[in-house]
């Protein structure tokens, strides 16, 4: 950062001034002052709208229902005793892990296929395959909801063409869980595809040429060239998607609203039901804070991945 130092020293002399600048003017032109003023609104958003609410949530979760008395960790204890909530923990993990694995596999496969076809045609295919990611999920889930509708289900009609009996998509607990996962995979797989495609394109061709000269088979090329080169992007994307999927709300809200019998609730939708709809704000805050430890662990690994990548690129 040598240039910055010279900038700071030179700036006052470069600007033509008749009178020697006052202290205030000097302050205003100091680099740190300018930088502070430029980042002030950002600090306001991070501090006032993220950090402060997060701390406030912890405080809220230690209050009783009417928010009049401090009850320590009792909200957490009550939740952990509750069968419905234990089911919510299980369902959130099952939903997030299954959906992310499927999204990653499908995304990788599509990126690979897209990478294989001539460059000229890639644009149009990419354009079509990215459509699910572009439509606001709350609205596209409405379409899925209609496709799953018990008596008019168009998916069941397609299945009936192959003489498969109708599936109770949203009425039976396992099918409802699978439906939520299907919609989430449909929405999220294109994101993986686009990330992996960018990563595939950044692998230098020389590496493949070298592998070919060494007589590598297709599988070996994938295993020893492509995957190591993409490892970082794969882990960042998977971890990032794990956070987003784990915290998902809109798909569950529109598709099942937690039903049948609260069996498809995830943390976010259960927190909403307890906190906002039933009016027990402290316990709702406790529900959503259960996400925090897991998110913190994932965030740590994402950050490590990003730092490694910065070093590899050689910034």
């Amino acid at each position: 950062m040598a240039s910055d130092a010279t900038i700071a020293r030179n700036a006052p002399t470069v600007a033509p001034r008749a009178a020697p600048p006052t202290t205030l003017q000097k302050m205003a032109r100091r680099r740190s002052t300018v930088a502070f003023l430029l980042t002030l609104p950002l600090l306001g958003v991070i501090g006032g709208l993220v950090a402060w609410p997060a701390a406030y949530a912890i405080y809220l979760s230690t209050l009783n229902r009417r928010m009049t008395a401090f009850i320590g960790l009792e909200n957490y204890a009550i939740l952990l005793d509750n069968d419905t909530f234990r089911m919510v923990i299980w369902q959130s993990c099952f939903f997030a892990i299954t959906a992310v694995i499927l999204k990653a596999l499908i995304g990788f496969w599509l990126a690979h296929m897209l990478h294989h076809i001539p460059t000229k045609g890639q644009r149009i295919w990419r354009g079509m395959l990215l459509v699910p990611w572009v439509i606001p999920p709350a609205l596209s889930t409405l379409g899925w909801w209609w496709m799953f509708e018990p008596s008019y289900s168009s998916i069941n009609w397609l299945l009936s063409v192959f003489s498969v009996p109708p599936v109770p998509w949203l009425g039976e607990k396992w099918w409802a869980r699978i439906s939520v996962i299907i919609v989430n995979v449909w929405y999220g797989a294109p994101f993986f595809m686009i990330m992996y495609l960018a990563a595939l394109k950044s692998v230098p061709d020389q590496l493949y040429e070298a592998a070919d000269i060494d007589g590598a088979t297709g599988w070996q090329r994938l295993r020893y060239v492509t995957l190591p080169m993409m490892r970082n992007i794969i882990s960042i994307t998977v971890l990032f998607s794990l956070i987003v999927t784990f915290a998902n709300y809109d798909i569950v809200r529109v598709l099942t609203n937690g039903g049948p019998r609260d069996l498809t609730h995830v943390f976010a939708s259960y927190a909403f039901q307890v906190g906002v709809l039933s009016g027990n704000i402290p316990r709702g805050a406790a529900v959503s804070l259960f996400m925090f430890p897991l998110l913190a662990v994932i965030a740590y690994f994402v950050l490590r991945g990003i730092n490694q990548r910065t070093k590899e690129i050689g910034a």
Binding site: P53, A57, L60, A268, A271, G275, M291, L295
Partner: peptide, 12 residues
Amino acid sequence: LVPDTLLFIPLY
């Protein structure tokens, strides 16, 4: 990385 579903209750 902080999801909105973690913040909506305190923000409410």
